[in-house]
Design a protein around this nucleic acid. Structure first.
Length: 423
RNA sequence: GGAGAGGUGGCCGAGCGGCUGAAGGCAACCGCCUGCUAAGCGGUUGUAGGGGUUAUACUCUACCGAGGGUUCGAAUCCCUCCCUCUCCGCCA
């Protein structure tokens, strides 16, 4: 959520930002409600002042054993007015809050203005992703052939879009998780292990609710949500806190499965491991001082890229244009790896800066000096990385002429010395 | 799931329906005092929002787990919910 003062004072900046994000939003209604609310609050507070004063007078009269009936009459009227006005305020505040929560975060000024992926900006590339030396099988074929994963079994157990990894495939998943967590730990992130079911407040805190309700699995009986990313529990770990400034930046990393309904997304590029309802991911989260958050975004991106470089997997970094940014993000880099058989770049990480958008919702603050005013931190997060697409890339890129898949060197020791999958 | 206990300021901990933003203690800060240290003495120290000021000062409102209710008036009484702790049951 944005700063209410900013919303009030900078309507034009706000309008422009929302437009660039490609969102339709009724700001006029919001401004009207805000005006109404402020007026009512003023009225209510005036009455409350009277109430406090008269209340003291009554108390004094009682103490002096004098008659207070007249003042009590007056209080009845005043209290009635307060109740009525506060009722109206409550209704309006509810609507207003709903609207404010639905305003997306605004893009940072450095973000290219644009509508869709064609307007994204290529930042850099690392390594040569293409292979012409042999005929490559798409990852689902080599995967099934070597018995590394089983989509049909996943369908049978749960439904389409669920995967069963087996044997070396399962081992590879576990190896990747350990490998990534080790890297991030060395990079200075505290490893945490978090709940995979979270409550409504947490989802609101990081901005998944109310907008993305359709994309999440929800346990109705307990009103708990399956996390779509570890970002949610990690960031909410800091909820309602005032962090000492010497603890910043806070850096945490966690492995978690991620659950996504992916409502309405069936396309041609969703085959195999590319888009599934449950997948594993290692996530990094940072909370920083506002003035360094964009530097921290760059280093976050670097931390994610390091995983790929150590694995020796080529990638490219894309900066998303304004129209492609997610609801809560002000700036975002995607890291993509190339699946050569598929002929397609795959998003394996998103590194985003949310500025104080999430911090305001989750009330995560810091205090610069003792007695000073507390301010909202900036939060950032990035995947480091999402497993299925990395696995798809490995399966396609690391195929050998003998029909096996070579294990990236850096993973061999995490695989009990195994150098090839499925053989 | 059953039976109890409890949730008050940075922490500990009082609190009779009005004089309680909240005693007392600790901690922190500022002074004083003391040849150093310790002790002692005096003072200051919550958050959010509104008004006001160049900025202070000043002022108003709200906040004692959350939400309702009773009352002229609620931290204090009643109801609902949440959380923590102890005991019991169930269970990986």
């Amino acid at each position: 959520m944005l700063d209410t003062k900013f919303i009030r004072n900078e309507p034009e900046v706000l309008r422009e930002g929302i437009k660039n994000k490609g969102v339709d939003f009724n700001l006029d209604l919001l401004y009207q409600l805000d005006k109404d609310r402020r007026q009512l609050v003023q009225e209510s507070e005036d009455f409350k002042h009277i109430k406090n004063v008269v209340s003291k007078e009554i108390s004094q009269l009682k103490k002096d054993k004098k008659d207070a009936a007249k003042l009590i009459e007056k209080m009845k009227v005043t209290s009635g007015s307060i109740k009525k006005i506060d009722g109206e305020i409550k209704i309006i505040s509810g609507k207003l809050n709903e609207l404010e929560m639905a305003i997306p975060n605004l893009p940072h000024e450095s973000v290219p203005i644009g509508k869709d992926e064609r307007d994204n900006r290529l930042i850099r590339s690392w390594g040569d992703p293409f292979r012409n030396d042999m005929e490559l099988l798409p990852h689902w074929e080599i995967g099934e052939k070597l018995g590394l994963f089983d989509l049909e079994a996943g369908s049978a157990i749960s439904g389409s879009g669920f995967v069963v990894f087996r044997g070396d495939g399962a081992l590879l998943s576990r190896a990747l998780v350990n490998f990534m967590l080790d890297i991030h730990r060395v990079q200075g992130y505290e490893e945490v292990s978090v709940p995979y079911l979270v409550n409504r407040d947490s989802m609101i805190g990081t901005g998944q609710l109310p907008k993305m309700a359709e994309d999440m699995y929800h346990c109705e009986m307990d009103d708990l949500y399956c996390i779509p990313t570890a970002e949610v529990p990690i960031t909410n770990l800091l909820r309602e806190s005032v962090l000492p400034v010497d603890q910043l930046p806070v850096k945490m990393t966690a492995y978690s499965p991620c659950f996504r309904r992916e409502a309405g997304s069936y396309g041609k590029y969703t085959r195999g491991l590319i888009r599934v309802h449950q997948f594993d991911k290692v996530e990094m989260v940072k909370a920083t001082l506002p003035e360094v958050s964009y530097e921290e975004l760059e280093s976050l991106l670097k931390d994610a890229c390091e995983v790929l470089e150590v694995l020796d997997i080529p990638y490219r970094v894309i900066e998303l244009c304004t129209g492609e940014l997610s609801f809560a993000a002000s700036k975002c880099y995607d890291i993509e790896t190339y699946a050569p058989a598929l002929g397609k770049w795959l998003e394996v990480s998103s590194c985003s800066d949310f500025e104080d958008f999430q911090a305001r919702r989750a009330r995560i603050k810091f205090r610069k000096e003792e007695g000073g005013k507390s301010q909202f931190v900036h939060t950032l997060n990035g995947s480091g990385l999402a497993l299925p697409r990395i696995i798809a890339t490995i399966f396609e890129l690391y195929q050998t002429p003998t029909g096996k898949v070579r294990v990236p060197d850096a993973l061999v020791k995490y695989m009990g010395g195994r150098e090839y999958l499925g053989g």
